[in-house]
Write a protein that binds this DNA or RNA. Structure first.
Length: 151
DNA sequence: GCCAACGTTGGC
DNA sequence: GCCAACGTTGGC
């Protein structure tokens, strides 16, 4: 079992949207490093910290779980889609996505400020300088610290 | 709204 | 293959 952090701008897709829909496909990832995680690393049953960026406050708002492993991101094939990428072909897809399901929403989010203040969480990729990766691995320890502080 | 950090593109 | 220009991310 692996642990991940997925970033989303709540204006685009929030934990409340997921709570309502119960399940969604995580499309539109157009970064190679994040793509590699989606294609090769993310497995069914893995747990996901759901992070809101550009929000007030920034932080982890809840938990999701992987229900379907990496498969081609079909939005890249659709010229009408905002995520269309002509370089990605159905016979040789460049981009991948996974399906996630809602697990829980924290009654109070674990904020970026709290994460920064916790000595045990200093290694998180989230805090590393200039980090923009939207899919990041998280250790089991980091995951359990966050889950136990986010009720 | 600003801007630093970073990834990608394209001319050479 | 280099690197300047450009676009995007995301905290503040």
């Amino acid at each position: 079992m692996n642990y991940w952090l997925f970033k989303s701008e709540p204006g685009a897709y929030s934990i409340d949207d997921l709570a309502k829909e119960k399940k969604t496909f995580w499309d539109g990832v157009r970064n190679y490093q994040a793509r590699n995680f989606l294609r090769d690393g993310v497995k069914k049953g893995d747990q996901v910290l759901f992070y809101h960026s550009n929000s007030e406050p920034n932080g982890i708002y809840g938990i999701a779980e992987i229900v379907k492993e990496g498969y081609p991101d079909h939005t890249a094939f659709d010229p009408e889609s905002h995520h269309f990428d002509p370089k990605s072909k159905p016979q040789n897809p460049a981009w991948f996505m996974v399906d996630i399901t809602f697990v829980k929403k924290f009654s109070t989010p674990v904020t970026l400020e709290e994460i920064k203040a916790n000595p045990k969480l200093q290694e998180m990729k989230l805090l590393q300088r200039g980090n923009r990766l939207s899919i990041q691995p998280v250790t089991k320890e980091e995951f359990s610290i966050i889950v136990s502080s986010g009720k």
